[in-house]
Nucleic acid binder design. Structure first.
Length: 492
RNA sequence: CGGGGCGUAGCGCAGCCCGGUAGCGCGCCACGUUCGGGACGUGGAGGUCGUAGGUUCGAAUCCUGUCGCCCCGACCA
């Protein structure tokens, strides 16, 4: 990726794309706006899925799967939702091709196969799921209904960027139905907490939990909660959302239940999701000029072992030791890769695995065999130490824990250092241009002010933080009264 | 949809202005020397130059159309 670029340079965006490609995570597909996730990139997604899925199950959710296609009449049922997504939908209008009578070997859409009703390729699944929930929910005994699905969705974005915004992406979407507003709000907040915990514990990425302004919230939601993370160029990235839907979808799809008292009431809903964008966030939050830095809890390979050898015989000797070490580490549940390729020199392998972000590298050569030692190098700080072979199985777990927390602390410090309180519009603009990051400022709560600030500075209100203390102040733009600071930032 | 750029070997690119045997680097294959921080030598395989048409004795190169991609905007719960 070239030493002239650093993780925080103005060319961050290009640097990021290059890294995604060089680390073998993903590439642009020949299909417009779509992405091919390569095996190494996908394995990171699988690690994320595993961890999240456990957390969803622990909070009482189950997995199911709903159709990719949403009949247009269902899609338009919840007006705000439909309107919000209308401009970025792929639509199926025909179901058949036929041989082109004009051009041999070519196919055309068969005009006779026009669908009576178009099918929208889901940009999100509320419509199809709530139309199904109507059939599933009759009584308070059917509630709460706590379902998640792992799926792909399609949003026909004008411009795309690997992982951060692609025309098709993978995600999970939870859709729950509840008997009371209070319970649904609790669910919304609980899942936001799950996301925040996942981001901080697994991704080692500190986040701010908050609510979106009315202008930024999910179409069809009463409240949109989100977690916002900071990338190393100081820009914000929304990495998860949780929506309190009120009774909007229940109304649109006529989903009612009988209460214990025999009354018929509309159910209350939530939806929440995280996507493969998390991978982009992970990369941009931790990587350095040598490549990815993966937190141990999400690294597909925890430890790579690189043999140093001159001859087949030396490789054989090293290998037998490696087998012992590798077996001991695997027994503790770690993923271990023995890179015994004989066409590459050790230095090349070091660089390559660093590029891929493997947290720990162990090198073993003839010298180590003599001394009963190995060289252990950690990816995050690049420190190397020589330790006794017998100590490896004990030392590695500690080291991995240390790496996990070190990466988090580093990101936390960065986030805190790049978070600034400002009280005037001039300071606001100055901080955005010179320092970047999150800017905490008073806002009068109006959509007009929000959109004017966005227009003039490209900064958006990332969220109204849940933990913001009440504080009297004046809106930096309009000077009107405000009781809380909100988080502004330029964002991806 | 606007502004800019690019389609030539698996990848990255040169060649095009000024038409004349399709090249370079990386990677790949074989052999040898190397191997504790991105090795080297020798030999080899691999391309209808995005696509359609035109000009020409002859087109990667000139002309026209067309398709696609990338970057910057507009757009983006």
């Amino acid at each position: 990726m070239g030493k002239e670029l650093t993780a925080r340079s103005v060319d961050y965006s290009q640097w990021y794309i290059d890294l995604v490609k060089k680390a073998d995570l993903a590439e642009n597909s020949d299909v417009r706006g779509c992405m091919v996730i390569k095996p190494y990139g996908y394995s990171i997604w699988e690690k994320m899925q595993q961890a999240l899925d456990i957390m969803f199950k622990e909070t009482g959710h189950v997995n199911a799967y709903f159709p990719l296609f949403v009949p247009k009449s269902l899609f338009e049922a919840e007006e705000k939702n439909a309107e919000g997504f209308a401009k970025e939908c792929a639509i199926v209008t025909h179901y058949r091709l036929k041989a082109d009578p004009e051009k041999k070997g070519k196919l055309i859409v068969d005009p006779d196969s026009k669908l009576e009703e178009e099918l929208v390729v889901r940009p999100t699944s509320e419509a199809i799921i709530w139309s199904t929930y109507k059939k599933w929910i009759q009584s308070y005994r059917d509630l709460p209904l706590l379902i998640n699905q792992w799926a792909n969705v399609v949003r026909w974005e004008m411009r795309t960027r690997l992982f951060l915004r692609t025309a098709e992406f993978l995600w999970q979407e939870g859709h729950t139905a509840h008997a009371t507003s209070n319970e649904a709000v609790k669910e919304t907040e609980q899942m936001l907490d799950v996301y925040a915990e996942f981001a901080e514990t697994f991704m080692a990425m500190p986040v701010i939990k908050g609510k979106k302004s009315d202008g930024e919230k999910f179409p069809g939601a009463i409240d949109t909660y989100c977690i916002e993370a900071m990338m190393q160029d100081g820009k914000a990235l929304q990495v998860g959302t949780s929506h309190f839907l009120g009774q909007n979808f229940a109304k649109a799809f006529d989903v009612k239940f009988s209460t214990k008292e025999g009354k018929l009431e509309l159910v209350w809903g939530t939806s929440w999701g995280v996507s493969t964008r998390l991978i982009g966030g992970l990369i941009m939050a931790h990587s350095d000029d040598d490549g990815l830095v993966l937190p141990p809890k999400l690294a597909p390979v925890h430890i790579v072992i690189i043999p140093i050898f001159r001859s087949d015989e030396e490789l054989l000797n090293v290998s037998s030791k490696v087998d012992d070490i590798s077996a001991a580490l695997k027994a503790k549940g770690y993923s271990v890769k023995f890179d015994n390729r004989d066409n590459l020199k050790p230095g090349f392998k070091f660089a390559e695995w660093e590029l891929k972000g493997v947290p720990i590298r162990i090198a073993i050569g003839p010298r180590d065999l003599e001394n009963g030692t190995v060289e252990v190098a950690r990816r995050d700080t690049k420190e190397k130490q020589v330790i006794k072979m017998d100590d490896v199985a004990m030392a590695i777990p500690r080291l991995l824990d240390d790496i996990q927390s070190n990466i988090f602390q580093k990101a936390l410090k960065f986030k805190n250092d790049k978070t600034t309180k400002v009280d005037s519009y001039d300071d606001f603009k100055k901080v955005l241009d010179e320092k970047g990051g999150f800017v905490l400022a008073h806002w009068d709560g109006t959509a007009e002010t929000e959109s004017l600030i966005k227009e003039e500075t490209k900064a958006t209100i990332r969220c109204i933080p849940l933990d913001a203390p009440n504080e009297e102040g004046k809106c930096i733009y309009s000077g009107k009264q405000s009781t809380k600071r909100v988080v502004f930032a330029r964002a991806y």
